[in-house]
Simulated assay, not measured.
Amino acid sequence: MSRSPSLTRAASAVSGALLTLGHLIALYFIYLAYMAEPVGPWDSETVAHSQFASGLVLALSLLLAALTLACVKAAWLRKGWYLLPAVLILAAVLRLTLLAPEL
């Protein structure tokens, strides 16, 4: 049984909108993580907030990658949608490791 084109278009639009919203939220938190720089050696709270935001982005991006996989397998979205969670995962891992703020 084949799917109707209108149902496929609607599923593509809904899944694309949900993934876009998720990516925008992740982008906001990775922006916060990269903008958080400690004022001095006593400012461990800012480092903790940066690490928390990066960890949140990592978890959210992994969830978005799984949702993207499901949408691509259902043929609602194209494979190019994998790029966004991959970039966000890379940015979060870099902020947690090599680019972590230092005290």
Rank of each mutant, 00 (worst) to 15 (best):
S50R: 02
S50A: 15
L69Q: 07
T46Q: 09
D43R: 04
L67C: 12
Q51F: 10
F52T: 05
V57E: 00
F52Q: 06
W42E: 02
A59S: 13
Y34N: 00
G40W: 00
L63A: 11
S44C: 11
G55N: 15
E45A: 15
L64N: 10
G55Q: 14
S61T: 03
L60N: 03
E45D: 13
Y31A: 05
D43F: 03
E45K: 15
A33W: 00
A48T: 09
L32D: 03
L56Y: 15
A70I: 11
S44V: 07
G40N: 11
G55S: 14
Y31D: 01
G55A: 03
L67G: 10
P38I: 05
A36E: 00
S44W: 11
A66D: 01
Y31I: 05
L62F: 15
A66M: 09
D43H: 01
F52K: 03
Y31P: 01
V39R: 11
W42M: 00
T46W: 09
G55P: 08
G40M: 01
Q51C: 09
L64P: 04
L69F: 14
G40C: 03
S50T: 01
V72I: 15
L58Y: 02
S44M: 10
A33S: 04
A36S: 06
V39T: 13
S50V: 06
A66G: 09
A65R: 06
V72F: 07
A65G: 06
Y34V: 00
L60G: 06
G40K: 02
P41S: 10
L62Q: 10
L60H: 01
H49D: 15
L32I: 02
L63F: 08
M35S: 15
G40L: 03
H49N: 15
L63N: 07
E45M: 15
E45I: 14
A36Q: 05
L32R: 02
G40D: 12
A36N: 02
Q51V: 10
L64H: 07
A59W: 06
S54W: 03
G40Q: 04
D43M: 02
A66F: 11
T68Q: 03
L62V: 12
A48P: 08
Y34P: 01
L60Q: 06
L62N: 12
T68I: 04
G55F: 04
V72N: 08
L32T: 03
T46C: 09
L58P: 04
P38N: 10
C71T: 13
H49T: 08
L69K: 04
L60V: 04
L58R: 00
A66Y: 11
F52A: 07
L67E: 11
